[in-house]
Simulated scan of single mutants.
Amino acid sequence: MRAFESVSDVELKLIANNLDVDYDCRIEAAKEIYRRAGEADGKGLHKPDGRYI
């Protein structure tokens, strides 16, 4: 199970932007935000319908 799987989108944004939170934790929250937004491959981030972000 992913660390932020059960966290809401709003909570993820708050964690990613909170400078009092550990840097690595903020990075993982940002990765989860991007994962929810679309799928990452070797060439970048894509929406589920294949559009490039």
Rank of each mutant, 00 (worst) to 15 (best):
Y23Q: 14
E32H: 02
R35P: 06
E28Q: 07
L14R: 15
L19A: 14
Y52Q: 14
D20E: 15
I33D: 11
A29G: 03
H46A: 07
M1K: 09
N18I: 05
R51G: 12
L12P: 02
L12N: 02
D22Y: 00
V7P: 01
G50P: 10
N18D: 15
S6Y: 03
A16D: 04
V21Y: 09
L45R: 05
V10P: 00
R35G: 04
A16L: 06
R36F: 06
I53H: 08
H46P: 05
C25I: 15
E28I: 00
G42C: 10
A40D: 04
R36T: 10
K31N: 13
D22F: 01
A30M: 13
A37F: 08
L14K: 12
K43R: 15
D49G: 14
K13T: 07
R2N: 13
A16Y: 01
R51Q: 14
Y52N: 13
N18H: 04
I53W: 12
G38K: 06
E5H: 01
R51P: 04
N18F: 05
L45H: 02
E5N: 00
Y34M: 14
A30V: 13
A37Y: 07
P48R: 15
D22L: 08
N17Q: 09
C25H: 05
S6L: 10
V7A: 02
D9L: 10
G44R: 12
D24I: 07
G50E: 10
C25F: 07
M1F: 03
D49W: 12
E32C: 00
A37W: 06
D9I: 03
D22P: 02
C25W: 09
V10C: 01
F4I: 11
E39Y: 12
Y52A: 15
K13G: 02
L12H: 00
N18L: 03
I15G: 00
A3H: 05
S6R: 07
S6E: 14
I27E: 10
R2L: 12
A40M: 11
L19Y: 08
G42K: 13
K43S: 13
G50K: 12
A3M: 10
D41V: 07
C25P: 03
A40F: 04
N18Q: 04
H46G: 04
L45A: 06
R2E: 12
D20W: 02
I15C: 02
R35Y: 10
E32M: 03
A40V: 09
S6T: 11
A40T: 10
A16K: 06
D49Y: 05
L45N: 09
G50I: 10
L45T: 11
V10H: 06
R36A: 05
R35M: 06
L19F: 09
Y34L: 15
E5L: 04
A40P: 05
V7G: 00
G50D: 08
K13R: 13
E32Y: 00
Y52C: 14
N18G: 04
C25T: 15
E39G: 04
S6K: 07
